[in-house]
Design a protein around this nucleic acid. Sequence first.
RNA 1: GCGGUCAUAGCUCAGUUGGUUAGAGCACAAGAUUGUGAUUCUUGGGGUCGCGGGUUCGAAUCCCGUUGACCGCCCCA
Length: 438
Amino acid sequence: MAQFQSLPGFREFYPDAFARRSHIFRGWRRAAHAYGFSEYDAPVLEPLDLYKAKSGDEIEAQLFSFTDKGGREVALRPEMTPTVCRLVGARANALKRPIKWCSIGEFYRYERAQKGRERAFFQFNCNIFGEPGPEAEIELIGLLVQALTGFGLTADDFYVRLSDRTLWLHYLASLGLDEARSKAVLGAVDKFEKIGDDAFKGYAEAHGPLPEDVKAKVLAFLKIKSLSALEETLAPIGGESLQARLADWRKLVNGLAAMGLGEFVEVDFGVVRGLAYYTGFVFEAFDRKGELRAIAGGGRYDDLVKKLGGPDLPAVGFAIGDVTMGLLLDQRGLMPSFGPAAEVYVVIGGEAERAAAFLDIAGLRAAGYRVEYPLKDLAFGKQFKAAAESGAKLALIYGGDELAKGVVKLRDLADRSEHEVPRAAVVEAVRDHLSGGA
RNA sequence: GCGGUCAUAGCUCAGUUGGUUAGAGCACAAGAUUGUGAUUCUUGGGGUCGCGGGUUCGAAUCCCGUUGACCGCCCCA
């Protein structure tokens, strides 16, 4: 047993695990590219105050934070949102709109590791800045869906739950609740799905029992699962801001439907999301079976750029984590296995043939082919076995007989056919074989 | 931060009421096989039984502590 092991919640990526991680990153980048997002990155270590400013002092308990040798209070980044808000805020006036940015980075949270949650994990973060309307949400949710379907996941595997803090607050105001009471109700709504009626205990402690008729309306609102049901509930209430918000909802839901994403999206006002900097639409992606933690989450935070010292700039964003998404891909059999992937295996007769083989190996590699050969002398039988295991489609045989004739024997490892080619034409022969044969 | 379960080879696991030198399969390596591959056979390397302490003539096995993993709570940006 090793004397030192990795810290709790930190993962080591042996080559097979690294290949899986790369597969995930590739899929994310492919989707972001299709949607026209530009990739950026930023420091892993940030001033602690950046996170306190965004989320409050209590956040520190869940951070990898410490004092550096210069006496600075610092923290490993637990998320990308404050960083990207700072970056965009600093150059907001010079950036072409709409600002569509994405990144893939590692994040660190000092929390108890659990299934689907590590202390170090990767996230795909996507943001749109400068667009106040639901058009930004349409674009982002579209990207979110494609970032998952790109791996072969379907609407049978996951869905996106759509909710709205703005609409909640307007609706609760129409029920006669002030701001403090509304926030307490939202806290209860957040917990209701998990613990049921007990969720309202916190509200009762702070503000006295919630009137039964109000509570009934809140629970009925929670059950709304479609735009038409939403319209039915809100139409009789009237009120300018409420109706304007309803128009935003129509735009969002209809826009997503027009993109063909209707089956991926569900209206669900049970989604509120934790730390209260979200200002509008919020959304979360879950597996359909409900076995895993949230796959992705996001929403609008129009106040955050300004709060962090930038201009008044509306913002929407989401993040997908690599851990839960990887588990889902495993469960659905969508994680490919990554074996060795040599294209050409060079069989070398012995020490005398090695120099000639090396010259051609170097030439093939310079041409971009992935070429393997035995580092030490091996019996022919062993070399052919190694060639088969290397994943190569063809073998080049450098034996004494061949070199005496100035040729190389080219063997197709799949159909076991062989023919000789002049050494001078090895690169061309390999190119023809790999492009034509496949 | 708080509970519950668990910890034996790189992986999956055996290991009897405490009893000699802790085993198997897979994986890895060498040979059978010095010019042709998925089989087979032989052999080998790899363990202070998570770590520390205790009980005992004797501990992988029983007890205590500790670390880690998993599950749940809190939280989940």
